[in-house]
Amino acid sequence: MNDAPERAIVIGASAGAIEALSVILPALPADFPAPILIVVHIPSDRSNFLSPLFAAKCQMSVREVEDKEPAERGIVYFAPSNYHLLVEEGGTLALSADEPVQHSRPSIDVLFESAAEAYGAGLVGVVLTGANEDGSSGAQAIASAHGTVIVEDPAGAYAETMPRAAIRKCPEAHVMALDAIAPFLLRELGRS
């Protein structure tokens, strides 16, 4: 496990997710020095279209998570629909079919909270547009574990409820416009 990345990015997005992620992900280079783990709320009958969609747009490799695969640098991982995505210590990705949390499976909180325990201060969490409050408890957990939290500016977001809830629960979050997020991630990761 010595070669497992010490840093990772987790992203949560709901209503308006595809447009928002289309601003961030294609702006990151193929050799981005951390794994990016993403939960998007999508109806379960429209599963599996996210990874091919973004694979076509991104320089980084993009795939849907398979249980117990190691999270590797330079790869974007999407949680499969109808499963929670969790991170084990040592950076192994695990899935669960436990009941939905706050009506969501995958749940952003479940990913963020487990990733906060696995990566601690090495984690950057990003809360994007959405019409529910998923991700706010997770953002709080990341901040408590000394990680970094970024929230999309609600003023410019497609749906402001989710970013607002995250800012309320996690006041130390960096709030920024969508197009400032990729440059921030590159600066942040360049430092390590």
Partner: peptide, 9 residues
């Protein structure tokens, strides 16, 4: 058991 899920449960 996978620890992250056990911990949650």
């Amino acid at each position: 058991y996978a620890q992250a899920s056990v911990r949650r449960r």
